[in-house]
Nucleic acid binder design. Structure first.
Length: 485
RNA sequence: GGCCCCAUGGUCAAGCGGUUUAAGACACCGCCCUUUCACGGCGGUAACCCGGGUUCGAAUCCCGGUGGGGUCACCA
């Protein structure tokens, strides 16, 4: 069997979307599982909306996710260029061929005429499609239109009375009646090919064996198959994966919240969590495991196990998964990831020394189990960097308890003159405290927590003490005492 | 509206004719752990869209209905 070759072909009209990312991922998984090749091609034939900025964003998001490609944009290859606007000459060549073989004809209908016609068809409940008005224009007709300054589009002559069956690797056989397909445009009046045409030329010339893409392209497939056949080219295999839906079960879009990979990256989601989550949206390993590396998914992946039904994007599950990865990554990595958020929040100065780096590490140890995504570190870490205001009613109540001065004094005494505390030391010191004071744990620890943070809940005291450091602890306890009035 | 796709708990999903009193995960609820919150552990609530067939037997196959979605551009 010949080598599998797939492509991910985004149009650079915006940042990489969650759905696009999953399509790219499934392409990659499918190909790599069989040691096949991946291509990234840029479909920028929409001159109005395409931008280099979007292209850059898409590529960087793909790399961030850990997806690589053997051939394509920015890595080159034997079938380039990989940007459609740089392949215009190639399309022109096949346009000529199609014109010569009579599969394609010039159409001079204006957009206004077509829109009006479409409305009539819609209203009448008919299949919407070009009626073939310009199909049999004579050479003179064409000249006359040209003389009027009309620029033609090129339309494909869709054969009538034919039923096309597409063999889809996830959906099975899907049939379309050609009578329901109007003669579609393959070259716009500005000479730029349309998506359906460019895709076919590229997929053939690049040797694509399998087209894995979102279900929204399913209805385009018969048009493309028609083109492959007209050109006498082999038709690749197709696999249309279901869409990702928002909470309201409609196609995911901006109004459903964050939809681009970039946004999740900015919020501090880890790429491996994102990949894991996306893979589970529509694919399942068939076992009870849920947590996988890209590599492990690759080993297990097959299109047979891809679901046909659409999947709702479940942020709760993403958060759980991401939190899981955060909890199970090294403290060093999480501290490094936390750093920019802490800095942005103004907790850290521009220039940081080793002592501050160590503090960030200790803070990370204390708060990472709370995090669903890194941006949340700002809230949880606040108590380590900002002195408390003691304005919470519940906190005031705790501080008003009569044993508070004794408890604070005891800890202050222990800390005064003591060296730097580590987690173990802090734990030991704290553990002895209740017994020494002859008080219950709650009467000791709750006031200390409030005294140190101004809040009744938060990180472990044995994490708090080392991160804050002896002098800061003493200072805060003193301030807390003063608020008792 | 035409065409196409889809249909198991709130969500993701396992199940591919009998081994199912229908897995697992997220979310939710309860208990435990614990100085708090979280983490973790244990347990619980909760589903085969409806109607016909086929079959000894259907969540699993077929047909119809209903529901949801996609698509009908000189966008991809």
């Amino acid at each position: 069997m010949s080598e599998i070759k797939v492509r991910f072909a985004p149009s650079p009209t915006g940042p990489l979307h969650i759905g696009g990312a999953r399509s790219a991922l499934f392409n990659w998984l499918f190909a790599r599982h069989d040691n096949g090749k991946c291509i990234v091609r840029i479909e920028d034939t929409d001159l109005e909306r395409s931008s280099r900025e979007s292209e850059e964003n898409i590529l960087s998001s793909l790399r961030w996710l850990g997806l690589d490609w053997d051939e394509g944009i920015s890595v080159g290859g034997p079938n380039g260029p990989y940007r459609q606007t740089e392949r215009l000459e190639l399309y022109r060549q096949y346009t000529k061929e199609l014109l010569a073989s009579g599969w394609v004809y010039r159409c001079y209908c204006s957009e206004e005429e077509l829109a009006a016609q479409r409305e009539v068809q819609m209203a009448a409940g008919e299949m919407v499609g070009y009626t073939g008005k310009c199909r049999d224009l004579s050479e003179e007709d064409c000249k006359r239109h040209e003389a009027e300054g009309r620029k033609p589009v090129l339309r494909f002559k869709v054969p009538q009375g034919k039923v096309l069956t597409i063999r889809d690797k996830v959906r099975g056989d899907v049939s379309f009646d050609c009578n329901g397909i109007g003669d579609f445009i393959i070259v716009k009046s500005d000479g730029i090919p349309t998506y359906n045409f460019a895709v076919v030329v590229d997929d053939y010339t690049m040797g694509i064996t399998h087209v894995v893409r979102a279900e929204e392209h399913l209805s385009n497939t018969p048009l493309q198959v028609l083109l492959f056949e007209a050109l006498g080219w082999p038709v690749p295999e197709f696999a249309h994966i279901s869409l990702i839906l928002g909470k309201d079960r409609s196609k995911m879009s901006k109004r459903h919240g964050a939809t681009s990979i970039q946004q999740y990256r900015d919020m501090g989601y880890l790429p491996e969590a994102m990949v894991n989550f996306l893979a589970l949206l529509g694919w399942s390993p068939g076992t009870e495991d849920e947590v996988f590396t890209l590599e492990q998914i690759k080993e297990r992946f097959s299109l047979e196990r891809v679901a046909k039904s659409p999947a709702v994007f479940d942020l709760d599950k993403l958060n759980w998964l991401n939190g899981y990865y955060i909890r199970n990554s090294s403290v060093e990595r999480i501290a490094e990831l936390a750093f920019p958020y802490l800095q942005q929040a103004g907790y850290l100065p521009e220039a940081v020394n080793d002592r501050l780096m160590e503090k960030v590490r200790l803070v990370t140890v204390a708060v990472r189990e709370y995090l669903e995504y890194m941006a949340q570190v700002v809230d949880y870490a606040e108590v380590f960097f900002k002195d408390p205001a003691y304005d919470d009613p519940e906190a005031k109540e705790v501080l008003a308890q009569e044993q508070v001065p004794i408890v604070f004094g005891a800890l202050q005494d222990k800390l005064t003159g003591a060296g730097a505390l580590d987690e173990i030391g802090a734990k030991a010191m704290l553990k002895k405290l209740p017994k020494e004071l002859g008080l219950g744990g709650k009467l000791v620890f709750q006031p200390l927590r409030v005294g140190l943070t101004g809040k009744t809940k938060g990180p472990e005291l044995h994490h708090l003490l080392p991160a804050l450091g002896g002098p800061k602890v003493i200072e805060r306890l003193k301030n807390a005492l003063q608020t008792r009035g």
